[in-house]
C-alpha cells in the first residue's frame, strides 16, 4: 500500500463520505484516490476557504468530511476558519501538505514553512505532523480529536512522507 492508499483507508475507517479539495502537487495523488472512490462525494473547489466551508456544512448533514489542501491555501482561509469554525465551534478536519520544510526547495514556499505553525498556535488550532508511514494509523484518533476539540484540526503531511526522504 502506498501512502495515499493508506491515508485513504484510514479516512474510510473514520467514516468520511465527503472530501473537498484544492490540489497542491504533494497531495494530488491522494485527491485522485478520493475522487475515484464512489462512496466519497468529491467536491473540487476554486479556493481553499470553499473547501473548509463545504466540509463545515456537511457536518450539519451528519456527513463526515475532510478538506484536502496545501499549506499556502491553509493560510488563505485562516480568517474563515476563525470566524466560522472557532466562532460557532464547528469541527473541520484538514489534511494539508506541509510545504516550506527544509527539504522543500521551492523559494515561494519558504514563508509558509516558517510561519504556518506559529499562525496555527495563535489561533489555537490543534495539529499533528505525520512524517512516517507508520504514523498514518493515528488518523482515526486525530479525527476524533478534531470532533472533540470542536475546531479546525490540521493534519500535516511532510515531504518525506509524500515524496520520499532526501536523506537517511
Amino acid at each position: 500500500m502506498d501512502v495515499s492508499e493508506q491515508i485513504h483507508a484510514e479516512l474510510k475507517k473514520c467514516g468520511v463520505r465527503l472530501a473537498a479539495s484544492l490540489p497542491d502537487d504533494w497531495v494530488a495523488p491522494l485527491i485522485r484516490r478520493l475522487d475515484a472512490d464512489n462512496d466519497i462525494r468529491h467536491v473540487p473547489v476554486g479556493r481553499e476557504s470553499e473547501a473548509v466551508m463545504v466540509a463545515s456544512g456537511a457536518f450539519f448533514g451528519g456527513v463526515r468530511s475532510v478538506a484536502v489542501i496545501g499549506n499556502t491555501g491553509l493560510l488563505t482561509c485562516t480568517g474563515e476558519l476563525a470566524t466560522l469554525n472557532l466562532r460557532h465551534q464547528i469541527p473541520v478536519f484538514c489534511i494539508v501538505s506541509m510545504r516550506g520544510s527544509i527539504d522543500d526547495h521551492q523559494i515561494y514556499q519558504e514563508v509558509q514553512g516558517r510561519r504556518t505553525i506559529p499562525v496555527l498556535q495563535a489561533y489555537d488550532f490543534p495539529y499533528r505532523v505525520i512524517d512516517r508511514p507508520e504514523e498514518i494509523g493515528c488518523i482515526p484518533d486525530a479525527y476524533q480529536w478534531c470532533r472533540l476539540q470542536k475546531r479546525p484540526f490540521i493534519l500535516f503531511l511532510t515531504r518525506a512522507l509524500l515524496k520520499g526522504r532526501r536523506w537517511s
Binding site: L18, V54, A58, E80
Partner: peptide, 17 residues
C-alpha cells in the same frame, strides 16, 4: 456569524449531505 462570502459554500456542503 462570520466567514463572509462563504455561506453559499456551507450551504452547498449541507445540500450535498
Amino acid at each position: 456569524h462570520g466567514a463572509m462570502g462563504f455561506a453559499a459554500s456551507f450551504a452547498l456542503g449541507l445540500a450535498l449531505s
